[in-house]
Structures are given as structure tokens and as C-alpha cells.
Amino acid sequence: MKPSRSEYLPVRGLRYHVRHWGREDAPKLFMLHGWMDVAASFQFVVDCLQQDWHVIAPDWRGYGLSQRSGSDSYWFADYLGDLDAILDHYAPGAPVNLLGHSMGGNVACMYAGVRPERIARLINLEGFGMPPTKPQQAPGRYAQWLDGLRQPPAMRSYAGPAEVMARLQKTNPRLTEERAAFLAQHWAAPNAAGRWEILGDPAHKLISPVLYHVDEAQACWEEIVAPVLWVEAADTDIWRWLGSKERARPEIDRRIATIAHVTTASIPDASHMLHHDQPQLLAECIEAFLLPH
């Protein structure tokens, strides 16, 4: 495995953990993890990259080794604000290569439309966006959020790393023993009682009271000027959030079509966690998109 190093950075009032791989003077590639994940999750892809890269991957607020917000909810706009500050710190004024997985892909796409001049090339790994909503859902959504505040969520604990590994492999049966063992050490840690807990703020499990507006997201996507590589896993089921597969595929294609300069790719024999399942194929896909430019 390629060695990584940790850095702690003040970002908008929180202590952020940022993981680095590669030489400081190598071309920069920023990687953004998804919901209930951590920056170390990209280790396997980084190991497969052939070019020398300085990979910079933060743990989002409330995940991994980054500080928790202490609030009742994590507003999506906060991720945009944090990313803006991180890019200003590591690449002030320079367009960057940006990759995001799942929630990180959604953040990356939104940001690339809001700050188009900051992105050189964008790679979206399974960042499809959330289901459409209607204004009529707002009262029920706020009520559901308020009900959640009365009984704050908690993270399940595990007896040790072996149970954490089993949990990871239950979610993704393709995960090998070796990779599960590595991820378990970064995805969870022992608490004061000796039980292992996921390194994520339980508040992330609260439903957001703010409805997802597809038209607003698309308005941002339409402003992206950088070339975009949209990567899906051949065996993903993440589309289920958008309904049946027959319904989801046209909706996903419609969203992709709002991006001006987009290339699509599919990674075979991979699930939503494609960076765990097929890191070699994904690394080849990433570098084929980035290297000629």
C-alpha cells in the first residue's frame, strides 16, 4: 500500500482531518468520500494509480477524524463551504482535478457549477443525486425531523474489528478480507468502554428537513464548464433511491444530459462501492481521463 499522511486543518470553525498520498510537488487530485465513509476509503484506488499524484482527501465534517459540528443536522451547503475553503488552502486560485463518490460526487457536481473556474476536470462516481421532491412534502418532512430530535440517533457498537469487518462485508459482499480489515481500522475505533464505534456523527442519520430540489441541482450542473467523467458501477443498485430501475434509468440519463461536456463509463463486476470492488479498472479509467490533459 502507498503510504498516507494525516494533516489537521481549521476549516470554518472545525478541525478537519485531511489525508495525503504522494509527493507535495506532484499534480494534485482531490477526492471526496460519500455518506458514512472516510477518506482512507480511496486507498485501494490510490494504490493502483500509475502516475505520480498528490492525492488530497478530507474526512467530511462529522466523519472519520474530522471534528463533529455539534448541531442537530448537517446542511448540504456546509459541504460546499468546506470544500471551497479546502481548495483555497491547497490550490489557491488554480483549477483542480476533483473526484467525488456518491454524496461526494453530488457535492463535487454542485460545486463545479457554482465555482466553474475552480475545476479543471471533474470525476463523478455514482453521484446520482437524490429523489425529486414536491413542496407539499415540506410539512411532513419538518415534522419527521422534529420527531427525530426527540430521540437522537445512536451508532451501533461492535465487539471488535472482526465484527466491523463482518458489517462492511454484509453491506458489500465483494469486499475481500484484506480490504475489509484495512477499512475496519479507519471506519471505526474503540470507545471508552472498549467497544468499536463507527467514526461518524449519529446526527448524520437524521433526515434532512430541507427538501432536495432537482431543478436547483440541475441549474448548477448546467453551469459546469469543465469536462466531466460520469462513472457508474455495472451492478449498482443505488438507483433504488429514485424508484424502480425502469423509472430510475431515464431520470438518471436526463440528469446527465444537463452536463455540457460529459463522458460516461461503466465499471464491470462492481457495486456502488466501485472504488473497493474494482480499484484497478477505476484507476485506469481515471487516468485515461486525466492524463492526456
Rank of each mutant, 00 (worst) to 15 (best):
I123W: 08
P152D: 09
C220W: 15
G13W: 08
G64Y: 00
P132R: 15
Q151F: 05
P173K: 00
L242F: 13
H33P: 01
H89T: 11
H20K: 01
L80C: 01
A257M: 09
R23H: 08
A260M: 08
A226C: 07
F182K: 00
T264K: 09
P132Q: 13
S102Y: 02
W241Y: 12
V225R: 15
G104T: 11
A162D: 15
D59I: 07
F30H: 07
N106R: 07
R23A: 08
W145Q: 10
S244Q: 12
H276S: 02
A162Y: 05
L146Y: 12
F44R: 09
A85E: 04
L29R: 10
D201I: 04
H275M: 14
R118F: 14
Q67P: 04
R179L: 02
E216L: 12
E223C: 15
W239T: 07
R61K: 09
R121G: 08
W145A: 14
D237G: 13
G160S: 05
A193C: 05
G140S: 03
T133W: 03
A112H: 12
Y111I: 13
W196S: 04
A219E: 13
Y212L: 04
A265W: 05
F44C: 05
H54P: 12
T236Y: 03
A189T: 07
L229A: 05
E163H: 03
M36K: 06
L206Y: 04
A159P: 04
S4M: 12
F30I: 09
L281Q: 14
T258E: 10
D147H: 11
P92W: 04
A57V: 09
W196F: 12
Y16W: 03
L183T: 00
V18F: 08
R19H: 06
W75R: 05
Y90L: 00
I256F: 06
S6G: 15
Y158T: 06
G148R: 09
A248V: 09
I123M: 10
R12D: 15
P139G: 10
R240C: 11
P209R: 10
R12K: 14
G81Y: 06
P190C: 02
D277T: 03
P132Y: 04
E223H: 13
M31I: 11
Q169P: 00
H186R: 13
I224F: 08
A85C: 10
P95R: 04
Q43K: 14
T176E: 02
L199G: 05
D52T: 14
R23N: 09
F44N: 01
T258V: 14
F44T: 06
L146W: 11
V210C: 05
K28P: 12
W187C: 05
R247G: 15
F182Y: 07
A138C: 07
A40I: 02
E163Y: 02
K170E: 09
G140C: 11
N172E: 05
R12P: 06
P58W: 11
L9G: 00
